[in-house]
């Protein structure tokens, strides 16, 4: 049995039906545990004081904002090459979730930046490419709405997604390419030495897991909605044909 059997809409619907509530429950548990632990049961940072607690929202949302775009890129490429409609609809479904994550990361970042850096916003390479990513999300969603024919819309949005990936990748790695920026480098990485004390690190991991589960649950839910909307559209067309 290959992975592509899930590209069949009927198969996709029956497989994901139990997954949505399960993932939703997992996301709720991880988010509540991670955020309550992070907000109320962690000490203040030695330099940032209580402002450090923004990390439990900022890092997971920024992480998922970029990952969502990369997921859309993979789904778009699958659509372009293999023409599976479920894949194109999954990319479409992920965009509003991704843009929300981006907005959360931008707002929490500004709230942290004002007391810590001394400014809400700076035209730092990482911040700027993240803002451009936000605009790409808006453009991507607008393009889906603007084109009547679903296959053409899927083609053109896929190309837009490919171009936007530049900024998704840049906003993650800008600090490595242009090392004279204001935003700090990655606090979390698998190979670098530990920068974040364990007492902040573990609730952060729980929170990241919660955001990730929430993202997957919402994307599956929205993809199911998109598939149903398309079926409804097909039924309406058939009805109109029968009447004529």
């Amino acid at each position: 049995m290959s992975l592509w059997t899930y590209a069949n809409p009927t198969r996709f619907m029956s497989t994901t039906r139990p997954l949505v509530p399960a993932l939703g429950a997992i996301a709720a548990v991880f988010l509540v545990v991670g955020l309550v632990w992070g907000f109320f049961f962690t000490p203040d940072d030695y330099r940032q004081g209580a402002t450090v607690k923004i990390i439990y929202l900022h890092v997971p949302s920024a992480l998922m904002a970029i990952n969502a775009w990369l997921m859309m890129l993979v789904a778009s490429l699958i659509w372009l090459v293999r023409r599976h409609h479920v894949s194109a609809l999954a990319a479409r479904a992920a965009a509003p979730v991704g843009v929300t994550m981006t907005l959360i990361a931008l707002v929490t970042g500004a709230v942290w930046g004002q007391p810590m850096w001394g400014t809400w916003w700076a035209w730092d390479p990482r911040l700027t490419s993240f803002l451009i990513l936000f605009l790409f999300y808006l453009g991507y969603m607008a393009l889906w709405e603007a084109i009547e024919d679903p296959d053409t819309a899927a083609d053109l949005t896929s190309v837009l997604c490919l171009v936007g990936s530049v900024f998704a990748v840049l906003s993650r790695y800008a600090v490595n390419f242009w090392n004279q920026g204001l935003h700090q480098g990655a606090s979390l990485s698998l190979d670098a030495e530990e920068n974040v004390a364990d007492v902040f690190y573990y609730p952060l991991l729980v929170s990241i897991a919660g955001f990730a589960a929430l993202f997957v649950a919402l994307v599956l839910l929205r993809t199911r909605t998109e598939i149903r909307a398309r079926r409804l559209h097909a039924l309406r067309l058939r009805e109109r044909m029968a009447d004529a």
Binding site: T42, P43, G118, T119, G185, N195
Partner: peptide, 18 residues
């Protein structure tokens, strides 16, 4: 005319440092 602080990526509890 304007001074911003740059944060390094280290996070440590206050008590530990004290």
């Amino acid at each position: 005319s304007e001074i911003l602080a740059k944060h390094d990526e280290s996070y440590m509890p206050k008590e530990v440092i004290d």
